[in-house]
Structures are given as C-alpha cells and as structure tokens.
Write a protein that binds this DNA or RNA. Sequence first.
DNA 1: TGAAAAATACCAACAAATAGCGATTGTTTG
DNA 2: CAAACAATCGCTATTTGTTGGTATTTTTCA
Lengths: 207, 207
Amino acid sequence: MSVREQYSVAIIEPSRIVSEGLSAILHDSDFRVVRQFETVDDFNQWEAALPEEKRVDIVLLNPVLLGTHPSQPLNGLFPDACSSLVAMLYSYIPPELLLEFDATIGIDDAPTTIIEKLRDAVATAAKRLDCQNIDKQELTKREKEILAYVVKGLTNKEIGEKLCISIHTVISHRKNIVHKTGIKTVSGLLMYALFNDIVTADEIPQE
Amino acid sequence: MSVREQYSVAIIEPSRIVSEGLSAILHDSDFRVVRQFETVDDFNQWEAALPEEKRVDIVLLNPVLLGTHPSQPLNGLFPDACSSLVAMLYSYIPPELLLEFDATIGIDDAPTTIIEKLRDAVATAAKRLDCQNIDKQELTKREKEILAYVVKGLTNKEIGEKLCISIHTVISHRKNIVHKTGIKTVSGLLMYALFNDIVTADEIPQE
DNA sequence: TGAAAAATACCAACAAATAGCGATTGTTTG
DNA sequence: CAAACAATCGCTATTTGTTGGTATTTTTCA
C-alpha cells in the first residue's frame, strides 16, 4: 500500500442516500468506492470470492448493521485486519461498539473532514499491521479494554464493576498486560495506550 | 446538596416518547423530574423566573437542540455551572459537542444504567464546584520535582532515596500536589505535567 | 472436532499508596 | 514582629496494587 496509490473503499450502509452521498464525495478524491452493500452478509459473500490481494483498503460500515451485540461479527469480518474499518454514524451507537473502528464519520462531517478521517484510518491500519508484524505480543481486545480503564485512573475494583467481572479477573488481565508490554508504570502504560490508539488524550481525566 | 436528598431534574427533549420514557424510568428513583421542555428557549424562560436556590440539580438535554454550533448556548445556559448537565443521545452527535456534558445517556441504556449515570453526573458537578471554589494554586519547585519523579513511575521510597529525604516527606508533597491540582490519578498527573512543561513525553519510560 | 488461546475466577503474602492527624524549622513579607 | 508559606519528618489505619501461583469455562480456528 504505497503513499500515492488510490485507496479502494467498500461501503456497507443500509441508507441509499448516505451511501450515494459518500460515493459522490469520495469521487474526486484518491479514495475509490469499488462497491456498495446494504448488509454485512452481502459484503461477506462478495469479499469471500476475492483473492487476498484484491481486498479493499477501507471498509466503511454503519455499526447499526452489527446489532447491539458487541464485536462478534467484527472478528469474522476481518480475521487478518488487513483492511481499515471506518464507522459511518448518524444514529446513536454505544461507544464500546466503536472501539474496533479505526475512525468514525459523522453525518454532518464536511467532505474535507471525511477525507482527512479516511487518511487517518489507513495510517492507523498500517500502524496496526506494523505492530502485528513487529511487536512481540499484541494485547487482546479485553486487555486493551482493561488498559483503557487503567490509564483513565479507575481502580481494579471499579473496572471489575464496570465490566461486570471479578476484581481477580481484572488483576489477571493487568498481569498479562504488564507481562506482554513489559511496562510496569501507569505513566508508561498511558504513553503506550496513547501511542497505540487505545485511548486519546482528551479521555484522560484532568481532575 | 446532601446525599440522601431527592435530586430535581429538568428534561429538554423534543421527542415526547423519550421525554415521557425518561420520566417514567426516573419516577421510582431518587431523581424527581420537575418539568419537561421541548426547546432550550422554553427552559431558559422558566429557569430565569426561578430563585437561585430553586434551580434544578440536573438538566437532561438533547444536544441536537443546540444545533451544530459549539458551546455558545451552553455557556449562557449555566453561567454558574451549579447544575449538572447530562446529554440524551439517540442520534449522532459530534464528540466535540459532548465535551461539556457531565454524562451521556444512550437510547438503549437500561434504567439502572441511567440512574447510575445520573448519580455520576451529580458527583462530577459537585467536584467541579469544588475545583472552582478552591482555585488552583501553583506548585512549588520541590513539588514539581516530586511530580516529575512520580509520573516517571518511581515509587515514593525511590523518590525519597533519590532526593535524600524521608518517604514521609515525599508523601506529604504528594498530598499537597493532589490537593493543589485536584488530580488524583497518575494518568491525570502525567497529562498535567506534560501540559505544564514539568516533564516531556520522551522522559516517560516505555518499559 | 480437537487443540490452543482467551477470558474468567480464586488465593495468599507482600508492597505501596492514601487519609487524617500533628509537628519543627526556616524564609519571606506586610 | 507576626502571619503565611515551604520544606521537612512522624504516626496510625485503611485501601489498593503487585506477584506468583492454580484452575475452569468459553472462543477461536486449523
């Protein structure tokens, strides 16, 4: 995936208006919409028939299509995480469902904003690939979730209550996080979390 | 605002369904919905006529009523920030618009979740008031020195050894730092230290 | 379908941090 | 001078985190 290349985009979006609008906006950019789908199943069917190297660079997906249940379909969607996943938002989506997306586009975003966000998303995906290849050990989804709460300053007990798991489990996850990253201090973990897009700076309570 | 008090709530929400639903859910809690409005103007008119001490504890507001323009109406809404402001979300709202809210309620939140979030919101508002009253003081040179070591991940004992002072002194300094800044978590302190040029990012050990 | 990985849960002993107290010694400053 | 502040040190009690285990259930995937 070189820098000056045109990036291919697939849109999975139930609303034709939104779908067509996005296509129009991306028409004059270096993002090329190769196909539009109305359901995840349609997309999966199409994608399955594709050779590995013809996979799209970006999948623009409306999270409502995933239902309220968390990330089960997502894991199946991108086993190798070779594509960048971007959420198209115009109805309320619980924040925890958005964790696995590389970016989110709002219904009232300006065209320039949208393109900018897509650029960020491919960069994030590229970084994620690097991390997978280079990094010794990637954190699991659950571990990232725990880490996010840790650097936000919640105690183990609070995290356990929030995720409805025992404090022992939280402690176990923390042990694994420390072991995998080799980072023992909260400050170091915060830097790691910021650097790896597990949290953003504005999520850290300054009070 | 004592602990066992009933908190008064005003709802500003264009959808009657949502508005009534919230009222019903809060009916059996210690939150009392005193009035429902469909526009911000309606609310402002009502609120203006109220004596200071009769202001509601919580304003539950649908952010769509604020338009896409950022927080101008919000500042006017609560000049003294005596109330807690909670967002009612069921359509997409740009994240930056949600910064000034003490909490956000999603359309699919369970009643217990809603009540929990409202409780958090009043706590946040109370803390915000405290911060405003005890206006922030500057840290002393020694305190900054301690803070630098804290965010670098040294323990109190290590800091004491490094500076050739007792661990009790370190603890005292830390207490003063927490009290002056109002920041209790290491992550928050790191952000503070970075923001105030007490440390730089590359000084934070990522191991 | 069977093995591996991830998530879950628990224990015990120890280390570290926090809260709430007080107290002494300088230094600055109105 | 007296008051305010900074820096130092001390105590007790309690909470929270760390470390190094073991073990079960669920999920994933080849």
